[in-house]
């Protein structure tokens, strides 16, 4: 068993786990943060995407011990002061989710994408979110939502 110390959504956590434990399982089982989802465990579908030290990463192909000392952000950290983040608002307004299973990974991917590209074209949005598979929406509502959120975030609201 190894000790893992990390920060998630600004809160410090310490846990003990086997070296083989996946980061996503540590987040979900040991920390009880079930917003991050497991979709494929081979790094393709992107449902497990979180922020690790400010950049998006797939938590299903990272070990928990590799995140020792890291600062993580999960979907639970997106809401601030009881208010939905502009991305979350835009996903709701533009019907960017249906079953909601890919949504946490999609939100974290879009967050990282807009950080690096605040004024994307639709083609760039599609490429940016192609890291996450969604089976429900055909991506149209998601593209609309990311475009709208980009405008809101540029406006500084």
């Amino acid at each position: 068993m190894m000790t893992v110390r990390l920060k998630v959504n600004g809160v410090a956590h310490e846990g003990r786990c086997e070296p083989r434990k996946l980061l996503v399982d540590f987040i979900r089982e040991d920390l009880g943060l079930t917003g991050t989802h497991v979709g494929c465990e081979h790094g393709i579908c992107g449902a497990c995407t979180i922020m690790v030290n400010g950049e998006s990463a797939r938590s299903c192909i990272m070990l928990a011990v590799q995140a020792d000392g890291a600062e993580l952000m999960t979907v639970e950290g997106l809401m601030q002061d009881g208010k939905l983040h502009p991305l979350q608002e835009a996903f709701r307004e533009h019907h960017g989710l249906q079953c909601g299973f890919c949504t946490p990974g999609m939100l974290m991917t879009a967050l990282d994408f807009l950080r690096t590209n605040p004024s994307p074209s639709d083609g760039e949005i599609r490429e940016g979110i192609s890291a996450v598979l969604c089976r429900c929406t055909g991506y149209q509502g998601i593209v609309n939502a990311v475009r709208a959120a980009a405008a809101t975030l540029r406006g500084g609201r």
């Binding site: 979900r28 089982e29 943060l33 079930t34 917003g35 991050t36 989802h37 497991v38 999960t74 979907v75 639970e76 997106l78 809401m79 939905l84 979350q88 996903f91 709701r92 307004e93 019907h95 989710l97 909601g100 299973f101 949504t103 946490p104 939100l107």
Partner: peptide, 21 residues
């Protein structure tokens, strides 16, 4: 009408099978 299930699903508060322990 904007969906009523969205606020919980957007904030990681969905209740899928694997979320129960």
């Amino acid at each position: 009408v904007a969906r009523r299930e969205d606020p919980r699903l957007l904030t990681g508060q969905g209740s899928y099978v694997d979320d129960h322990r």
